[in-house]
Amino acid sequence: MWLQASSTLEFYIDTPTPFLLMLRPRSGMQQWIAREEYVLSPSVPAVEFTDSFGNLCQRLVAPAGHFTIRTSVEIETADASDSAPGAPFVDIQKLPNDTLPFLHPSRYCDSDHFTEMASSIVVGLPPGYDQCCAIVDYIRHAIQYTPGQGEQNISASQVNEAGRGVCRDMAHLGIACCRALAIPARMVVGYLEGLEPMDLHAWFEAYVGDRWYTFDPTQANLHGGRVAVAFGRDAADVAIYTQFGPPVELLDLKVQVIKTSEPMN
């Protein structure tokens, strides 16, 4: 399907402030970018680089006063997320090198605390994709999805204890459980067509069989219409913006995703 996805971030800044942004999706296996717009107002010099996870990142110094970032992308993306029931677990010695960082505990995915719980969730299931599905089912039934109520990042252990969380929190818990079973798992932040309320969205991917597959504990049915913007070990790696120095005021954040029949003129 074709989507137009856009975001607008409006800030008020007291003093010139360095920013690190992560707002540009890249073309990949299940998405192709046809057209893109990225506007800074007022205009300031920006430098782009690719981080260790392959994300497109932008560095700039925002001036004092009102500062706005507007992005828009027209993109062809899969109309259904791939699934692979029965896809096998990949032995550690056979994993691609770039999946190895996603096996370890990280700041918000304390997988070393979930060995027993993850094992109990997947009892009797063949190692691999089917285990990931069981983890997602556990999260959907054990954790109340509370969109719009996640102000601070918390660990997977805290999410499991609280019994509620936003998409980011539920992704952290899924990642932690997968890693506890030695399945590489990574966080994804991006857009999801039809999300209510509309906002940026987080889900996770697990490496089974011979590739990464999408899992989303917040959705009863794993549908497509996803635009991946950033990948990382957890939320610490995929912040859409990071500012340095005195805190700045985020006045507004708007996200829109529109389904189109073809690229818009």
Rank of each mutant, 00 (worst) to 15 (best):
L60I: 05
R26H: 05
L250V: 05
P184L: 02
G209F: 08
Q144A: 07
Y145T: 01
G65H: 07
N265A: 15
Q58C: 14
G28N: 06
A80Q: 13
D137S: 12
D51A: 02
V47K: 05
V166A: 14
P247W: 11
F231M: 12
I69D: 00
P197D: 08
W212C: 04
Q149N: 09
R140M: 06
L60M: 14
D216L: 03
D130V: 03
E36S: 12
S43K: 08
D199N: 09
L40I: 02
E116P: 01
D14L: 14
C133F: 01
T77H: 00
T8K: 15
A134W: 03
I154H: 14
E48Y: 07
V61T: 13
H113K: 09
T99W: 11
M22C: 15
L251Q: 12
E48Q: 12
V229M: 15
V238M: 09
A182S: 14
F231Q: 07
P246M: 10
H172A: 10
M22F: 01
A230S: 15
H104G: 01
C132F: 07
V159T: 15
A230T: 12
D14S: 15
R59Q: 14
V44K: 04
P16A: 01
L173N: 01
G194E: 11
M198R: 04
E116F: 06
I258S: 14
A162G: 00
A239N: 13
A176F: 05
F67T: 00
P96N: 08
I69N: 04
A171W: 06
V248D: 00
V238Y: 11
S72Q: 07
A84D: 08
G163E: 07
T242L: 13
D237S: 04
W32M: 08
L181A: 08
